[in-house]
């Protein structure tokens, strides 16, 4: 179980990394923590000619305040983001989601940016980013651009990053006072989820406002905003019956496939169940901030 032969560079500056990556075109791949890429390499499911390792780009690692929100460098290890006080304080949903990613040994190596860029439909970090309305910064040969999480995830392992573009930072806007929860169900602790829900509840004059979001994972080719469910929240008070009504349609528009871990029907049910649990928790946090 050995990878195909490839070459490797670890440029010391971002511009060089971008240039090398751009010149390699389709044959080049970014290497971050390697916790998704290297299993695929070992299984020969991915066959690059060149890996561009970001590990020397120390500027890409770290957490900083961005206004009242928080910005996290793409190369920040998942474990470091999870325990960073700024993240816990300003994006507790993300910290909670990170705690579900694999096992400590995976999170010590895996990066926040790697998880976003990999865009696994079952991954927690993308779901949290979407629920938190994060903005992602991409640096490429044509310069820097910012993309909303909403537009970043485009399908199974597919993102808006063009070949040659490197994800450099993720910024999460302030969300103080909001209710939040991340809930998932997996076969074993640390596994990718069968289904999960990342929920943010925002009150406006005692009613749930448009910043309230429900993101579900496990039944689509990417993390998915449950818009029908969100619609049931907007303008309503956060009562049990409102939350239940929202959870009941959390699977609307999803067309999950059946696989070895369960039928489509089961997955839809799990999506609704996880959403209901997350909404309950988030509402409790709203009530008792």
């Amino acid at each position: 179980m050995k990878p195909v032969d490839f070459d490797y560079v670890a440029p010391p500056v971002l511009e060089e990394a971008v240039a090398v990556l751009a010149s390699a075109g389709e044959d080049g791949r970014v290497l971050a923590g390697g916790q998704s890429l290297i299993p695929l390499l070992n299984l020969r499911l991915v066959r690059p000619r060149l890996l561009v390792d970001l590990r020397r780009l120390t500027g890409l690692a770290g957490v900083r305040a961005a206004g009242d929100g928080v910005a996290i460098g793409a190369m920040t290890r998942q474990a470091d983001a999870e325990t960073a006080p700024l993240v816990r304080e300003r994006a507790p949903l993300l910290a909670a989601a990170l705690a579900h990613v694999g096992h400590p040994a995976i999170r010590f190596r895996g990066t926040v940016g790697g998880s976003l860029a990999h865009a696994d439909p079952l991954a927690e970090v993308p779901a949290a980013a979407l629920a938190l309305d994060a903005t992602l910064t991409l640096t490429g040969p044509d310069g820097v651009r910012r993309v909303a999480a909403e537009d970043f995830f485009q399908g199974f392992l597919a993102t808006a990053a063009a070949p040659g573009e490197i994800l450099t930072e993720i910024e999460i806007p302030a969300c103080a006072g909001r209710g939040w929860a991340f809930v998932e169900f997996s076969r074993r602790h640390g596994d990718f989820a069968l289904a999960g829900a990342a929920v943010v509840l925002a009150l406006q004059d005692g009613r749930l406002g448009p910043a309230s979001r429900i993101v579900v994972l496990g039944s689509a080719d990417r993390c998915h905003r449950a818009r029908a469910a969100e619609a049931r929240l907007h303008g309503e008070p956060p009562t049990a019956s409102v939350l239940d009504a929202a959870a009941a349609v959390a699977d609307a528009g999803l067309e999950p496939a059946s696989d070895v871990h369960g039928s489509a029907e089961y997955r839809r049910h799990l999506v609704r169940t996880m959403t209901a649990r997350a909404l309950g928790l988030a509402a409790a946090r709203l009530a008792a901030p």
Binding site: F185, H261, Y266
Partner: peptide, 11 residues
Amino acid sequence: LSPARLWEAMT
């Protein structure tokens, strides 16, 4: 006795 199998049986 996977969760899916049991859920389906219960359902």
